[in-house]
Design a protein around this nucleic acid. Structure first.
Lengths: 327, 327
DNA sequence: ACTCTGAATGTTCACGTTAACCTAAACCCA
DNA sequence: TGGGTTTAGGTTAACGTGAACATTCAGAGT
């Protein structure tokens, strides 16, 4: 009965607009100092908090809130993205609503947000539109797959993947395999870059195809693969998790890393620098991805009709012990 | 102009209530089949989505949405919690709004949610109340610190911490140190359990006090500590990250794990089972924590006046290679 | 004294939805 | 054929807020 503008207004003996004016600091100075003081006192007393739903209803498009969609919150990679974006947006005075895999993408459009940022490998033409919804909310997607329908930040892993292969060749590897799934995404820039590198070396491409992204997956799949065709001496993996799992497996099989086999991961997870064999990786500049996405979104929110925005961020290879042979 | 109940109503030539009835399947059968079909057609055509803000405004307390607050999304531990809760809530038809560190806790209460779950080590009497807000939203906190003011799930790490010390003693360790920060939280159940274990063994307690939670922190701090008073032969760490970092450091210093020094982590991060030395850990049943929190919240949302709910979940020690000496 | 100005505050409406109540026609049974 | 009941809707109000416009009142200017 009290924690609304009306309630406070009644308490103080003014109209709700006076309270609103005090709280929003609009129509500067239109409220006398004494009234303002009484209102603020009452506001504090009842612990008033504005009702976001009501605010959103009356002035849609200015809620100072954005939604962030990531593919799977429980993966550290996406958790970090969510955390960064939350900070970045907060710095500009925006609140963030974060959603992950379990949520229905399309329900985001129902919330009173000014914009949506999606980090979601599965966003393509079919998925992007429903997220974007029919109406206003500004939309930016960031991903390893190119997208030409809306504002988009593209993480290009191809050059670094190519470099990874060449680097392994230089270290003396002759059977260089890619560890990852390409069934769904033939245009995965990791796979493309790997192929380019293989072509340049003249070696045979080898693919160890995974079903999932976990260490268990790689251990099972690679074990079978090794039994069938032997153990390659160089590996470029689709992410760091897999690279660590593979290293673990290789050790179990009596192979030394990097002496008998070199391993390169992908993502740039901070922890792998401190793994027992510091892991080479294709470093995704997550922070830069987040920052650029946010800049695009801000621009789109300010100028809904501005030109399509697009930017490519190129990951680069970081070599560490797991792929550096001493000789 | 179109994507509202009114818009659709005008398009079809009925009143907005008819559209509402069709969409909500309320007042069963109050709408004729033919009208229903025409409405649904129009709804699909314009891509109508309900306006959450408007819904929330009119029937507060039944938005089928809950907010989840975690301390720091960019930490995998909390990312996993957020991901689990999202799934669990989704299974019951609830949407989740996830927030992390960067958000202002108190703003959650402004959103039209039916309840709030907080996984936040810093929630205490001072922080909990503002989150809970003055008004309705049901509130459940889950944490390693006991809380008696609201529904609460308590993760008790003390017994497992005690077991960890005893286990290390049994393995022949005689200098068993705790690695963690206790400045802020003297009542940290990890520290309490550690002390109990030390008391039982008769050894001297040793604390390697950290500032942060990252591997870098532990490497710097422990290096100094070792220089000053030598290297203990057993370590109970406040989380798995730190345990891995410490193992890395010990190896660098020429110590073998577990032969020269045993290490035990805390959290039960799935990955550490596959670390090069499979890591012993105090396993936090995250999933159970999430599930219980959600059950409490559901109950509180159904029966706002029900008795205070409280439950303790006890973590247990999982021993692996990093603390198991062969002899 | 009489308008004029502007500061301080009030009134009304709209946002999109649901709940509660209302109505008109059709049907039903004696 | 007249009363009631059911079917298929419609009308209105309310939720809390902010924008636009309206009002009041004191003092300034003439």
């Amino acid at each position: 009965m009290a924690a609304t503008l009306q309630g406070i207004a009644k308490k103080v003996g003014v109209s709700h607009m006076t309270v609103s004016r005090v709280l929003n600091n609009k129509d500067d100075g239109r409220v006398s100092a004494s009234t303002r003081a009484r209102v603020l006192e009452a506001v504090r007393e009842v612990g008033y908090r504005p009702n976001r739903a009501a605010q959103a209803l009356v002035r849609s498009g200015k809620t100072k809130t954005v939604a962030v969609w990531v593919r799977d919150l429980s993966q550290p990679y996406f958790g970090r993205i969510a955390g960064y974006l939350e900070s970045i947006c907060a710095d500009d005075g925006y609140e963030t609503i974060i959603r992950g895999r379990a949520a229905d993408r399309s329900t985001l459009a129902e919330w009173p947000v000014d914009g949506i940022i999606a980090f979601d490998s599965e966003v393509d033409d079919k998925l992007g539109r429903p997220v974007y919804g029919i109406e206003d909310p500004a939309f930016v997607s960031a991903d390893v797959y190119v997208n030409r329908d809306y504002d988009h930040v593209y993480l290009d892993l191809a050059p670094a993947s190519r470099d990874a292969v060449l680097h392994l060749a230089q270290q003396g590897c002759t059977r260089i395999a890619h560890v990852g799934s390409t069934q769904k995404f033939k245009d995965d820039s990791r796979w493309q870059g790997y192929l380019a590198g293989i072509k340049a070396t003249g070696f045979q491409p080898e693919l160890i195809p995974l079903n999932g992204d976990s260490r268990k997956d790689v251990i099972e799949t690679a074990t079978k693969y090794f039994q069938q065709v032997g153990i390659p001496d160089g590996f470029v993996c689709r992410n760091d998790e897999i690279a660590l799992g593979l290293t673990h497996l290789l050790r179990k099989l009596g192979k030394r890393v990097p002496d008998d086999a070199c391993v390169i991961g992908c993502d740039g997870t901070p922890e792998i620098e401190f793994a027992d064999v510091p892991m080479s990786t294709i470093d995704s500049p997550i922070f830069e991805l987040c920052r650029t996405s946010w800049q695009f979104l801000k621009k789109r929110m300010m100028e809904p009709e501005c030109d399509l925005q697009s930017h490519t961020i190129t990951a680069r290879l970081v070599t560490r012990e797991s792929s550096l042979r001493k000789s």
